[in-house]
Design a protein around this nucleic acid. Structure first.
Length: 365
DNA sequence: GTATGCTTTCGGC
DNA sequence: TTACGGCCGAAAGCATAC
C-alpha cells in the first residue's frame, strides 16, 4: 500500500478506422483508410486515420490521399470518407462506460480519457491490471472496440505509458519504476515542451527527461522561467500533481472549408466566410455560450496559415456584428498577404465564465 | 524583473 | 516528383500590469 495516486489513460485504437471495420467486418483484413475529402477534385484531401494493415504500407495520418493510394496501389484496399457524427455517437457511449470505472474522469478529445482510480483500488497498484482489463473487456463487449491503456502515479506517466504498447496494449508503470521509465524518453514527449523549448534545452545539453535530473532547478528556471522550469524539474523526478478533472467546456468553436480553387476574390471568399459565420454562430448559440472574440483563419496557396482576431470588451450578441467583424478581419488578411487563399475558416472564442468562478482580476497590492 | 493575458502560429489527432 | 482537412488546445511571442 502506498499513498500514491493511480491514474489510468485510455486511448481507443485507430478509432475512426476501427469503427468502420465494426460497421462492415468484411473490410477488416484489408488496408482501411479513412479520409477527409476536400471536394476540390477527385482524391484531393488527406488521410484522417488508417488501420494497422494500411500503416504497414506506410500510410499515416495527415498524408495526402493520392499518396496513400500510391502506397497501396498493389493491394486491394478500402478508402472511406469520415463519418464524424457516427464516431461522436460511438465515442459518447464508450466514454459513458469508461466513466463508470473512475473516481474522477476526464475526457480528452474524441478518443482518449484519464481516470483517477485511486480510491476504488484502495491505492493498491497491484490491482490496477485487473481493473484495466475489466475496462477493456467492458468496452469490447459493449462496443466491439479495442483500446490501449497506460497506468501510472500521475497523468503524464499514464499518458506516455498508454502509447508504448499498441494496439490493444496495457503498460503499467509502478511508482518505483517511474524515473527509470521516463529517463530515456525525449523531453519532447512532455506536454509543455514544443520546438522552441526543446531547442533551449538542447543548448543546455538536455535531450532526455533523465538529463533533466542532472540540472539544478535554479538553472532551469533561469533558462525557461519559473513556471516551465519548475514543471520540468518536477517531471524529471516523476512528480506531476495535475488532477484528473472533468473539463468545464470547450475554449473555442471553429469551422473551416477548402475553397473550390485558390483565389483572392473578395466576394468569392466573403460568400464562404458568411456561410461559416452563420454556421459557427448557430452552433455557439445552441450551446448557450457567450463569446467575446471572433477570428478569421486562412490557409494560403503554399499551405502557410494566417489568422486575425478581434476581441470585444463585452459579449457579442448579434449575428450582424459577427459578420461585420469577420468581413473586416478578412480584408485585413488580404491586405497584409499577397498569396491567394486555399482554405478559410471562422473561430469564436473567449467564452464567458459562468458566475461563481474565481475572478481573474483580484489584485491585492 | 516577473506574472499575466492576448494574439498568432504550431502541431496532434 | 508532387500531392495536402478540419478541428482543437498547446506553444510562442509580445504587450502590459504590477
Amino acid at each position: 500500500m502506498t499513498n500514491s495516486r493511480i491514474v489510468m489513460h485510455i486511448d481507443f485504437d485507430y478509432f475512426f478506422a476501427q469503427i468502420e471495420e465494426r460497421e462492415d467486418p468484411s473490410i477488416k483484413d484489408k488496408p482501411v483508410v479513412v479520409c477527409v475529402y476536400s471536394g476540390r477534385r477527385e482524391d484531393s484531401g488527406v488521410v484522417s486515420t488508417a488501420n494497422y494493415i494500411a500503416r504497414e504500407y506506410g500510410v499515416k495520418s495527415g498524408m495526402p490521399i493520392t499518396l496513400a493510394k500510391r502506397k497501396l496501389r498493389d493491394v486491394e484496399s478500402v478508402f472511406l470518407p469520415v463519418n464524424h457524427s457516427l464516431y461522436e455517437t460511438v465515442s459518447e457511449r464508450i466514454m459513458n462506460t469508461v466513466r463508470s470505472f473512475a473516481d474522477q474522469f476526464e475526457q480528452v478529445g474524441i478518443d482518449e480519457a484519464f481516470l483517477d482510480v485511486t480510491e476504488r483500488l484502495n491505492g493498491n497498484f497491484e490491482k490496477s491490471a485487473e481493473l484495466a482489463n475489466a475496462v477493456r473487456e467492458a468496452i469490447f463487449l459493449k462496443e466491439g472496440i479495442s483500446c490501449s491503456i497506460g497506468i501510472g502515479p500521475n497523468k503524464i506517466v499514464a499518458k506516455i505509458a498508454a502509447g508504448r504498447k499498441k494496439p490493444n496494449g496495457l503498460t503499467i508503470v509502478r511508482p518505483d519504476e517511474v524515473q527509470q521509465f521516463l529517463s530515456s524518453l525525449s523531453v519532447r514527449e512532455l506536454v509543455g515542451v514544443g520546438r522552441k523549448t526543446e531547442k533551449v534545452l538542447h543548448s543546455l545539453g538536455i535531450r532526455t527527461i533523465g538529463d533533466l535530473t542532472d540540472y539544478k532547478i535554479e538553472n532551469l528556471i533561469e533558462a525557461l522561467g519559473s513556471s516551465l522550469g519548475t514543471f520540468l524539474h518536477n517531471v524529471a523526478l516523476g512528480i506531476d500533481e495535475s488532477p484528473v478533472k472533468e473539463k468545464a467546456g470547450v475554449n473555442s468553436i471553429s469551422r473551416m472549408v477548402t475553397l473550390k480553387e485558390d483565389t483572392r476574390d473578395l466576394e468569392m471568399i466573403m460568400n464562404q466566410i458568411d456561410r461559416l459565420t452563420v454556421d459557427v454562430y448557430s452552433s455557439v448559440t445552441e450551446q448557450h455560450l457567450d463569446f467575446r472574440s471572433a477570428t478569421v483563419l486562412v490557409v494560403l496557396s503554399d499551405l502557410r496559415m494566417r489568422s486575425r482576431t478581434r476581441t470585444f470588451e463585452n459579449p457579442i450578441e448579434k449575428l450582424e456584428v459577427v459578420q461585420k467583424t469577420t468581413r473586416h478581419l478578412l480584408e485585413q488578411v488580404l491586405e497584409v498577404e499577397s498569396h491567394s487563399f486555399r482554405r478559410v475558416g471562422i473561430k469564436l472564442s473567449n467564452f464567458l465564465k459562468k458566475q461563481g468562478q474565481k475572478r481573474l482580476t483580484d489584485f491585492d497590492s
